[in-house]
Design a protein around this nucleic acid. Structure first.
Lengths: 195, 195
DNA sequence: TGTACATCAGTGAACGCGCGTTCACTGATGTAC
DNA sequence: TGTACATCAGTGAACGCGCGTTCACTGATGTAC
C-alpha cells in the first residue's frame, strides 16, 4: 500500500511529533516503538520504512522538541523586560510546548546524559539556542556577563522544574518554582560578581 | 545454603549498596535485577529472599543514596563560610558520594518523577534534609530567607550538574558548573529581594 | 496519453533477547526437646 | 550438651511478557516506454 511522497513525508513528521509526546510522558526507555506507532495510527512494522533505529527517532524527537521550545521563546516578548518575561513563561506550568515543563532537558534529563552522541548533540544545540535567545533579550547587561546570565538562569530553571516534578509535596513543589522565579527575575541577582 | 542472621543482613546491605552504584551508572530502568545481583556476587534467584520487587529496591537505594549525601554534607565545614563551602563541594566532581555528581536527584532525576510514591518520598525527604543542612550553615541570614536560599541554591545546583552531564562540549560543561558556583557562592546574590 | 513494471509504505506474523519474577531443590542455621 | 527437625538464603532452570527489529506479502504510486 505505497503512499505518495507528500503522504510519506507527512507520516514521518507525524511519527516524530507523536514520539515527542510519548517520550515526554514515559521517557525514552519507557515509550516503546510499538506504543508510538500505535499512537500515530500505524502498526509497528512500518517504523523501519522511516527510521533506521529507535535511537535515530530519539535524536530527531529531541531536536524537534528543542526547536519548538526555541521558536516559542524567540517569538515571545521583546524589549526592556524580555529576559524576565521569558523566565516567567519558561517556569509557568501552562502551555506545555512553550515552557520547560515540555522540555527534554527536564523530562528526560537523566536519560539524555546516557544517550547517543547524536541525541546529546541535539540537546546541546537546543541549550545553546536557548542561551542565544536569552542573551539577545538581556541586552541591557554588559556582553561578557550576558552569556553567564543565560547559562545560569537556564540551568537554575531546569533544576527547579526538574525538582518540582520529583517532589511529592505540592507546597514544596510550588515553593521551588516560586523561589527560582523570584531570584532569577530580580535584576542584578544573577549578575553580581564573586565575593 | 541458609546463612546466619548477621550474614543475611550484611548481604542485604551489600545488595542495596551495589544497586546504588548500578543505578547511578545505568539508571533505574537501565540496571537490571540480574545485573545488580551479579555485581553483588550472587545469582538473581536470591533477590526475592530480600526484596518484594525491584521497585522496593529502587526506593531503598534512593533513600540510602540520599542519606550518604546528607551525612557527608552535614559532616562538612561549619562556621562563617560553611554555606559557600558546601556549594563548592556539592559541585566539585571529585568525591562522588559527597557531591551532587553522585546524587539520584541528578543521576536519575527524570526517572524519579515517574517513580513509585515510596521512591519519590525518599527523594523528597533527602531534598528536605539537604535543605536543613544548608539552612543551618546559613545562619547569618534572616530566618525567613534561609529556606528560600537553600531551596534555590539546591535546585540551581541540581540543574547545573544535570546540564553539565548532558552537554557534549566539555568547555560548555565547565562553564555551566563555574557559573553556578560563582553566582551561588556570591553572598547576597541569592538573597536579593524581588524588583 | 496509455500501458507495463519497478518501487516502496504499510501490514501482521515472527525473530531473538532480556526483563522481572517464580519455583523446586540444596544444605547450613537456629530451635525445640 | 546432644539430637532431630523446621527454617530459609542461595542456586539455576523456567515462566510469561514485551522489547527492538526483520521479513514475506500487498497493492497503490511513480516511472519508463
Amino acid at each position: 500500500v505505497k503512499k505518495s511522497k507528500a503522504e510519506t513525508a507527512e507520516t514521518r513528521k507525524r511519527i516524530v511529533e507523536t514520539a515527542v509526546r510519548e517520550f515526554r510522558q514515559k521517557g525514552f526507555q519507557g515509550a516503546g516503538v510499538a506504543d508510538i506507532m500505535k499512537a500515530a495510527g500505524l502498526t509497528h512494522g512500518a517504523f523501519y520504512r522511516h527510521f533506521d533505529s529507535k535511537d535515530q527517532l530519539i535524536a530527531e524527537a529531541c531536536a524537534a522538541s528543542m526547536d519548538t521550545l526555541v521558536d516559542n521563546a524567540s517569538g515571545a516578548a521583546e524589549g526592556e523586560n524580555a529576559f524576565l518575561s521569558d523566565i516567567e513563561s519558561f517556569i509557568s506550568s501552562e502551555n506545555r510546548d512553550g515552557c520547560l515543563g515540555g522540555c527534554p532537558l527536564v523530562l528526560v534529563g537523566s536519560e539524555l546524559a546516557r544517550s547517543d552522541p547524536e541525541t546529546r548533540q541535539a540537546a546541546t544545540r537546543g541549550f545553546r539556542s536557548l542561551m542565544d535567545v536569552m542573551v539577545k533579550k538581556n541586552l541591557c547587561r554588559s556582553t561578557d556577563r550576558a552569556d553567564g546570565d543565560a547559562v545560569f538562569a537556564l540551568s537554575a530553571m531546569i533544576g527547579a522544574v526538574t525538582m518540582s516534578r520529583i517532589v511529592d509535596d505540592p507546597e514544596l513543589s510550588t515553593l521551588i518554582l516560586e523561589e527560582a522565579k523570584r531570584r532569577l527575575a530580580a535584576p542584578g541577582s544573577h549578575a553580581s560578581a564573586r565575593r
